[in-house]
Write a protein that binds this DNA or RNA. Structure first.
Lengths: 120, 120
DNA sequence: TTAGGTACTATAAATAATGTAAGTAATGAG
DNA sequence: CTCATTACTTACATTATTTATAGTACCTAA
């Protein structure tokens, strides 16, 4: 599953940080390029692969897949496949995923005020 | 200053996301490998370069420098140089930097509960 | 028979982030 | 003069993440 090299210094540094600092641990999980935006959208309701894609102009299908897989691995979203043709797959926040809401709110608020401050 | 290529798709994707989503914007700023841990330490008081280094086993001087520079650029920390020999440089949170406290708290709390959940 | 929709996968390439190792300037202590 | 201290800088190597492009399986409807 991993595309990372478990012998690299980077790997062990990340592991050590994750181990000791819950905030670094969290950041490793939600730190992907598109992760937070995907979560934001899913916080307001379940969505299909294609729907997500439309909401994220610029993302490639590969990236979307990768991020969704990682989120699923980390139990942040659930994936439901309907045996239809053409296929239908729905993504939805889990409970712990839904708990990200307050994190994202804080990030948003801080981001806004930082943006205001630095654009002066 | 930038190590990023302003013509890359990655650059424009990040810019677009930052533009539209304050949470992605924030994540871009505090998303570095060591950033949150550095901020955590500085939230409890100013520290010198060497002190930070000791608190972050595994970090290289290059990485510490890079992250501090980025934080400084983003006005999250301030840097004060004392004209002494050997040199003394102190890093301290700015006001907007200090405002990260609530973000970090949320991240920590979520990280803890996620860790608990997935280690069962 | 062919085209079309959906949610992917495979492979390669480009870019970004991080790590390694060595060197620098300034000055005071010995 | 030589060495130690501090906070870096530089050049390069390695690893990680993101992008690009093409192709797949399945059934349905025309």
């Amino acid at each position: 599953m991993s595309e990372i090299k478990q012998t690299s210094t980077n790997f062990s540094n990340k592991a050590a940080l994750s181990d000791e600092c819950p905030e670094a641990y969290a950041s490793n999980i939600i730190g992907g390029q598109w992760t937070l935006v995907i979560c934001s959208w899913l916080l307001s309701g379940k969505l299909r692969f294609g729907e997500l894609k439309k909401k994220l102009p610029g993302i490639t299908e590969r990236m979307l897949t990768l991020q969704l897989r990682k989120l699923e691995e980390n139990k942040i979203i659930s994936r439901t496949v309907y045996a239809e043709v053409p296929p239908r797959v729905e993504y939805e926040m889990t409970e712990i995923g839904y708990a990200l809401k307050s994190v994202i709110k804080e990030l948003e608020a801080w981001g806004e005020s930082h943006k205001k401050l630095t654009s002066k």
